[in-house]
Every structure is written in structure tokens, then in C-alpha cells.
């Protein structure tokens, strides 16, 4: 976006302004997320920077909210619940979603647009509607307040992300590779596991990460479906934020930000891998 040498003065001023505006928008996007990390080390139970913190006085900082979080049996239990639900539902959603994406990208697939629209719809329908419907459904089957109902619901919510991501990965797939594999004597199964799957893996993992984070973040459905046994961390956070917000929540939030930075890094590495494969 460099300006040409012959740019007028006005153009230069405008360009400078434009970059500043963009900088401010990037600041708006990221600052609120980053700011909670130092605040979670606040030694006082307030949600702002104290004088000690601003002067980098070590007394202004402490790990007490992290201690609070990690020594609370309820918090630990709810974090375990969240991960159990997220991992299980991700495995199912990734399997079902990948299969569906493979079918959807076949040339012969009938009614592709309509079926895709249907498979993606859980992402679009307001969560409160999904939550209420699933609550009534599982309550009638005497399955509300079970891990089963929560995991199944999260498969519903996570699968669209897998379908979208894997379909996108497949759109760049070179079908000649399949023919090449078959011409060399591989049968369909061998071709799938030795040729298609390794090439699709970055896309599948990316889809899986999406499903994972969707489940880990999900609040509304679990608010309806989870009993005291299954309470995941999001429900505890939600009620914590509703009643009296404690800095313990900020400690958990900071850990989650670190987690999303980790996942983002993984995504970026996957993307680079795919790019290398495509070009190489």
C-alpha cells in the first residue's frame, strides 16, 4: 500500500490519516482482550489499574486470583467438564462433518446448495431457539442433565464449522491425484487413507479446532441442558458475571485468551503447511 512518488500532498495526508484510522480499529479489536491479562494479576479486587500497577511496583501484582481459581474444586471440575464435552463432541462432529464435506464436494452430488444450507443452519439459527428446542426434546426423552444430551447438542453446533472448513480445503484439491493413485493400482480405501486424508488433514484439523472452540465457548445450550453434575466453566462464568463479578473470572479469562492464542498459532501453522503443499 505504498504511495507512488508522485502522490500529492493531500493524498499523503489522507493516506496517513487512513493508516491511523486502521491502527485505531486494530486497537479496538485487540486491546479489550489483551487488557484483561495484566488486570488478572491485580493484587486488589478491583477491575482497573491501581497506582502500584502503573508504576510497576511488584506489590501491585499477585497471583491470588489464579490461586483462587486453581484451588477451587468447583472451578476445576467445571473446567474438566468443559474439556471432556468439547473433546468428545469435536471427535464426532469432525467425523460426521468431514464425511459430509467429502460428499458435498463430489461433482455428482444432487441438490448440493440446499443440503449445504441445511447442514450449515445450526450456525445461523439463534442459540436461544436451539437451546429451548433441545431442552424440550431431551427432557421428554428423560435425557436432560446428561453428558450425552450436551455432547450431542455440541455436535450439532460444531459440525457446520467442520463442513465449511473441509469443503474449503477440498475446493483446492487436485482430483488428478486420485486418478494417479488409482492408476498405480491403489483401491479406494488405500487412496483415501494414503492420498486424500494426508492432504486434507490440515483442513480437517482446522475444522476440528473450530468445533472444539465452539463447544468450549458455548453457553446458551448448556445453560438449559447441564445439571449440577455437568456444569461447564462457561455456565459458571456466566452466572459469575451476572451476579457479582470476581477477578477470579479474569484469571480464567486470561487463561482462555492464552488458549485461543495457542489455537490461532496452530491454525496459522496449518495454513502455511497447506500453502507449501499447494505451491510445492
Amino acid at each position: 500500500m505504498a504511495l507512488p512518488d508522485h502522490a500529492t500532498r493531500l493524498e499523503r495526508v489522507w493516506h496517513r490519516t487512513y493508516l491511523i484510522i486502521c491502527g485505531l480499529i486494530f486497537f479496538f479489536l485487540v486491546a479489550p482482550i489483551i487488557v484483561i491479562i495484566p488486570l488478572s494479576f491485580n493484587a486488589t479486587p478491583y477491575f482497573t489499574f491501581t497506582k502500584e500497577m502503573l508504576t510497576f511496583n511488584p506489590d501491585g501484582y499477585s497471583m491470588r486470583w489464579y490461586d483462587d481459581l486453581l484451588s477451587s474444586r468447583e472451578w476445576i471440575r467445571s473446567i474438566q467438564n468443559s474439556f471432556f464435552i468439547a473433546i468428545t463432541s469435536t471427535i464426532i462432529a469432525t467425523t460426521l462433518g468431514t464425511l459430509a464435506a467429502l460428499g458435498l464436494s463430489r461433482r455428482e452430488m444432487p441438490a448440493r446448495a440446499a443440503i449445504t444450507a441445511f447442514l450449515i443452519s445450526p450456525m445461523i439459527v439463534p442459540l436461544i431457539i436451539t437451546a429451548a428446542a433441545l431442552f424440550a426434546f431431551y427432557a421428554r426423552a428423560n435425557l436432560s442433565q446428561t453428558y450425552f444430551s450436551i455432547i450431542m447438542s455440541h455436535v450439532v453446533l460444531g459440525a457446520p464449522f467442520v463442513v465449511i472448513t473441509v469443503t474449503a480445503a477440498l475446493s483446492g484439491f487436485d482430483n488428478q491425484l486420485i486418478r494417479a493413485s488409482q492408476s498405480l493400482g491403489a483401491n479406494q480405501v488405500t487412496t483415501f487413507f494414503k492420498v486424500i486424508l494426508p492432504l486434507l488433514l490440515p483442513g480437517i484439523i482446522a475444522g476440528g479446532l473450530f468445533a472444539f472452540i465452539t463447544s468450549l465457548d458455548e453457553v446458551v445450550v448448556v445453560l438449559f441442558l447441564a445439571g449440577p453434575e455437568q456444569t461447564p466453566m462457561t455456565v459458571r462464568m456466566f452466572s459469575g458475571l451476572r451476579e457479582e463479578i470476581s477477578p477470579t473470572i479474569l484469571a480464567l479469562a486470561s487463561i482462555l485468551v492464552a488458549l485461543s492464542i495457542g489455537l490461532l498459532t496452530m491454525m496459522e501453522l496449518l495454513r502455511r503447511r497447506t500453502e507449501r503443499q499447494r505451491s510445492g
Binding site: V30, F47, F238, L241
Partner: peptide
Amino acid sequence: LVLLPFWTSLLVRTSAWIV
């Protein structure tokens, strides 16, 4: 910088704004 908020939990972003 765009994807970080996208990948960050909705509750985390909401609590950040509360703070």
C-alpha cells in the same frame, strides 16, 4: 489481530467489556 478476537471466547470478550 482480526482472528484473535474471532478465536477468543465470547464470554471472555464480554467480560473484558464489563471490566
